[in-house]
């Protein structure tokens, strides 16, 4: 598994260019969270303190956390595995395995590119929120970053597991959707978890998207992220990364 630094750097710049050459994917990554912010930002009651939300504005403690969470989730679960599966399908992973550079380097550079894309997209979404709709800064900045890092780890690990086993891009998209939809439904994106029956709230709390979203909501409101959420994200990350490492097919 030789990984030469110049090769890894070259791969990463190349993969960044290729990522930006797929305008549809990039637009979707930014478009959905921005649309969400805009639609809810235009509803005046969303931007006023509400007793239902513990005296905070739902725009900052519900809508913005959802926008950030789905940005990460879409990149991790649908874009990232699709790219890698496409490379496997086209024989690029196999092609690399007869070159001096092991295909794991391609995986690393793809991971890096998608993590960067997530950071940039979140930055743009938040900037738009601050500039246009007076979005509040997270009350607990340190806790917020902690949720961001563990959330990206948990979600991208799941993406890695999908990428490890699906044979082609189409299958990656199918499996991605099959994982994404229940996560969205149970994670409290379509309906706030407060409206769930009790046992579903318990499930939402430990599923990766639900845990991440809960963490963002808590820290935005100024509180500490719940230990359950953080531990669940870390556990998902460790387990799925280990599984991906075992199952990854390079051909």
């Amino acid at each position: 598994m030789s990984a030469s630094i110049p090769a890894l750097r070259k791969l990463t710049t190349t993969e960044t260019k290729l990522f930006l050459r797929e305008p549809a994917a990039a637009a979707l990554t930014l478009g959905l969270p921005l649309a969400l912010l805009t639609i809810f930002g235009l509803i005046p009651t969303m931007r006023e303190p509400s007793a239902e939300f513990g005296g905070t504005e739902p725009f900052s403690t519900l809508i913005a956390p959802i926008a950030v969470s789905i940005t990460i989730t879409m990149l991790a679960i649908s874009a990232f595995p699709g790219f890698l599966a496409g490379y496997r399908d086209k024989g690029m992973l196999r092609r690399l395995s007869v070159s001096p550079v092991h295909p794991v380097n391609l995986l690393l550079s793809q991971l890096f590119v998608h993590l960067m894309a997530a950071v940039v997209a979140i930055g743009l979404v938040l900037a738009a929120g601050f500039l246009v709709f007076d979005l509040r800064l997270p009350g607990n900045m340190g806790g917020w970053f902690l949720v961001l890092v563990t959330g990206m780890f948990g979600l991208f690990s799941i993406g890695m597991l999908i990428a490890a086993v699906v044979p082609n891009e189409k299958a990656a998209n199918g499996v991605g959707m099959a994982v994404l939809l229940p996560m969205l439904a149970l994670g409290g994106v379509w309906l706030p978890v407060e409206m769930f029956p009790d046992f579903l709230q318990r499930i939402a709390e430990v599923l990766p998207l639900g845990a991440m979203l809960a963490g963002f909501r808590e820290t935005w409101a100024g509180g500490a992220p719940s230990a359950v959420a953080l531990i669940s994200l870390l556990a998902f990350g460790v387990v799925t990364t280990a599984a991906a490492a075992r199952l990854f097919r390079w051909e």
Partner: peptide, 12 residues
């Protein structure tokens, strides 16, 4: 080595 049916990224 040139492998049978191996392609590179479409937009490269």
């Amino acid at each position: 080595i040139q492998l049978q049916a191996s392609k590179i990224a479409e937009r490269l």
